[in-house]
Design a protein around this nucleic acid. Sequence first.
RNA 1: GGCCCCGUCGUCUAGAGGCCUAGGACGUCGCCCUCUCAAGGCGGUAACGCCGGUUCGAAUCCGGUCGGGGCUACCA
Length: 553
Amino acid sequence: MLSRELIDSLFPADLPEPAYWEERYPPRGLPDGALVTRFAPSPTGWLHIGGIFAASINVALARQSGGVYVLRVEDTDQARFHEGALAQFEAGFDYFGIEADESDLGGVTRGRYGPYTQSARASVYQSYVRELLRTGKAYPCFETPEQARARTARQQATGALPGYYGEWALWRDAPEEQVRERLDAGDSYVVRFRSPGAGRRVSFTDAIRGELSADDNRNDIVILKSSANALRLPTYHLAHAVDDHLMRITLVLRAEEWISSVPLHHQLFDALGFGRIQYAHIAPLMKQDGGSRRKLSKRKDPEASVGFYIEQGFPPEAVRYYLRGLANGRLAELPLPEALAAPIRLADFGTAGPLLDMVKLDDISADFVSTLTGDEIVDRVLPWAGGYDPDLAKTLSAERPLALRALSIERGEGVANPRKDLRKWADFRPVYGYFFPEIFVPVTDPSDERFGGLSPDLVRALAAGFADGYQPPSASPEAAWFDQIRALAAALGFAPNQKTYKKDPDAYSGSIADASAVIRVLITGTRRSPDLAAICAALGADEVVTRARAVLG
RNA sequence: GGCCCCGUCGUCUAGAGGCCUAGGACGUCGCCCUCUCAAGGCGGUAACGCCGGUUCGAAUCCGGUCGGGGCUACCA
């Protein structure tokens, strides 16, 4: 064992003892059953949608049990730190309404267990590393990265298990003189954990998966990164043990890729003298890729990034509802408000990774939007457009009454079967844009394919006839308004209905549906729209006639 | 290579030995409604990865196998 004097010389003289931290971060004294949870992302870019998934579960678990939800930033990897990631985290959490009880986000520390950013807690970890060194449960290791690579290569070549253990662990029991020599030479070192693992099997309980077992860890993993770094930070494993213990977390819910590390983490907690914490490992969100499925990847899949949902303007309620249903299948069968209010149960989690189904999300989203009033929709589209479609934002705020008229067609109060044509705010322009003269692009070419292949002459005749004799919808029923199109179509040789047309296609110019499609395209620029009479009422007679004439040149 | 996790319709899942000729939802297909959509109504399609075993009886238990995913970093 290395001398106390040598070990202490490795750290600042004023570095606190572990007892200091224990006192500074006392047990929370919460009632039994109150869960203290956390979500701990790394600031390496946009938050992954899986992060929102995990964060929402953590908040729900904390809130429903009367506990606390902590947001911790794990920035121990300085090389991968991404400028702006923190702001994007904030934007993401904000969008989805996920608010931490304790965090550093926004530049303000809320909570008395902070700081909640690992790079700001370097001395906390160091106190514990020094303690581990003093008690011989850790040791300095001077193996260089090149040597480590060579070691791994040799292990692979000989079929040995990779890692730093047994005969490969050259610095595990190095004599003090040797250590001192390298230190004097100014060589950098890392600190490794002296694993007590003896190659036995261990078993443990996962809150979601139940009883699990594995080979015990016997690898002397690195716990404190190279002394060559200006800021000496720990690796994930040590940081996890120290932070989750000191922040008095009671449930560590994380992705299943960490299951393999549980034996190691137990060793670490034991060596540190910490009580073990309950783990719950959730399956990652997956993506279909050819014949197989893989983890959703931020690099390859746009829908993996939280930014995607914000840019597209998916209502957060819909996304949260969908995600909640993925967490607990039972909740997917409940109506949205009930599902969002119902408790999440760890035991109800599936253990296989679900595929993210964007079609299903669209369906949920369309359902949700159909329950909103026109005012609510405008209030949501406006801020979205402010960021992603400035022209639309301008138009919308100038023409709010028109927008409300547009959004009252076949939706809103008293409508038994509301339209479900809006899934996300980016849909607004393609679906409702034609209501606004400022952003509407008239159809001027009579042979435009949107007219369905009708002859240009017929298109012009329809347009002229409609414009010339145009009767705006009055108090009269919509059916009566449509009569003018019927009459016009009949005069131009269109069949009065589909059935008649189908019986003898050659006898007609087309069916009433074809004629009406032309009017529709003239007025809206698209073959898909709500009731024509209602649209024309919203637009006003002048605009309708102008649009109809656009194709006459 | 070693170890770990996972495996019911295309997707999310219900199912904890007989209630299962496997249920629901989304998708998809057909029909109805209809001036086009979006919907809505009705109906259909479609799954227990495979092989053994235990049992009177297995999607459910056991073993194996195949497939997918993960860990095996001074990344988390």
